[in-house]
Design a protein around this nucleic acid. Sequence first.
DNA 1: CCGGATTTGTTCGTATGTATA
DNA 2: ATATACATACGAACAAATCCG
Lengths: 250, 250
Amino acid sequence: MVDLDGAISAGRSARTRGVSLREQVAEQIKQLIIRNRMRPGDLLPTEGELCEELGASRSSVREAVKVLAALDIVEVRHGHGTYVGKMSMAALVESLAFRGFLSRDNDYRLIADLVDVRATLEQGFAETLVASSTPEQRDRLHALATGMRTRAERGEDIIDLDRDFHLALMAPLDNDLVLQLTGAFWDVHAIVAPGLGSSSEQLVQTADAHLRIAERVAAEDAVGLREAIAAHYQPIRTNIAAHIARARED
Amino acid sequence: MVDLDGAISAGRSARTRGVSLREQVAEQIKQLIIRNRMRPGDLLPTEGELCEELGASRSSVREAVKVLAALDIVEVRHGHGTYVGKMSMAALVESLAFRGFLSRDNDYRLIADLVDVRATLEQGFAETLVASSTPEQRDRLHALATGMRTRAERGEDIIDLDRDFHLALMAPLDNDLVLQLTGAFWDVHAIVAPGLGSSSEQLVQTADAHLRIAERVAAEDAVGLREAIAAHYQPIRTNIAAHIARARED
DNA sequence: CCGGATTTGTTCGTATGTATA
DNA sequence: ATATACATACGAACAAATCCG
């Protein structure tokens, strides 16, 4: 049972200045999580309890909870209860993916920008990566790349290994935010521009590009690593440019 | 008047497999925006109209709209109507800020990770920045830095100029995503760790650090720019380390 | 300044679907 | 299979904000 004392609104007549009740409820639920030092997976009070404790109707509480669920601050399981969420980048992915769909009808701008961000992040961390990666991490990177190679030769899909590779590449940084951003940007790319840079005849080339990245990390060659990363994203940029040219004709 | 044809659920008895009605409504509203090629600021149907067109109750429509509003895909104005949103990074800021408050009670981990991301992004784009910045952009950067200097000497706050400076620094990239991420990360930093790296006796040093960045851009010195950016973030890292040490004592 | 129309904000009661024991 | 607890969904009513004549 969590402590609700202090999270009670103490009569919202005090400060209702323009801010809606739903926003107040959302803020109080967030404060509840912080105050009680709750962790992802912990059980939150039921909707009914929140209504009573926070002095709001079921609708207001539900709308607030849904907003927090969209941010992955809470997680709702039907017929089960409401829990503290995993704090993932789900909201960023959904937001960027929607913008990607919009830009896909026009100039592919967001996707091109996204590739620049992904490449620059990986290149920017190149020095730190080669300096702090452990032998185990380099082995894993190499194993993922060779796995992509063998599956590419059979014409099989390598999309899941691709995601794992880019996460494994950034793992030595010991930076959770970078890992989550890397995964989120990859997800957006996969949702909005599926198959961009992995058309069937390019599969082997894509796998080789990853293999060269793994080799440069193992060789502790930061300059070569940056070049290998640039080479990895080059065909993707070319494909995007082709799509843009095709879109202009319409 | 927007076209709602095709966005109608055609009887949701067909596909109700596990996915909640609210999610279906949210998806249909997004499709409505894409289908009609609507732009930020365009007026969406009223709640009542959406209920009728999508065959859902007002509660379900409202919850869906609130989720989309949290992602800044739509914007709701009380007593006015619902409009297409600005597609900002508001959700990312709120999500990261919440995680920042949680980590502030423990290890300041998110803030430290965030500084690494901000520094690496700016350093990673250094070459492109010096290569593509226009004289006007360099002048603006220098003007912002000197403005920070004069106000710092008077002991005045320079936080607003700081945000403008970091946005102006990235402006030459012509990459909207980078600009929005830069602003979002800055906002999270300001919300979670206010005054970190801008304590009153450090104000002049902070302004000088920005001045050196502007000078390196003007000199088209990418290597020096990277060093200047690293120097800019150094006192912030030191302050964070001090906070971590202080937190450990408790 | 006012009043009416429109639109979103909030509440309540009720019924239904879902998961656990 | 039954009972309980919980989230999901609906509809009607009233409150508050905004705009306009």
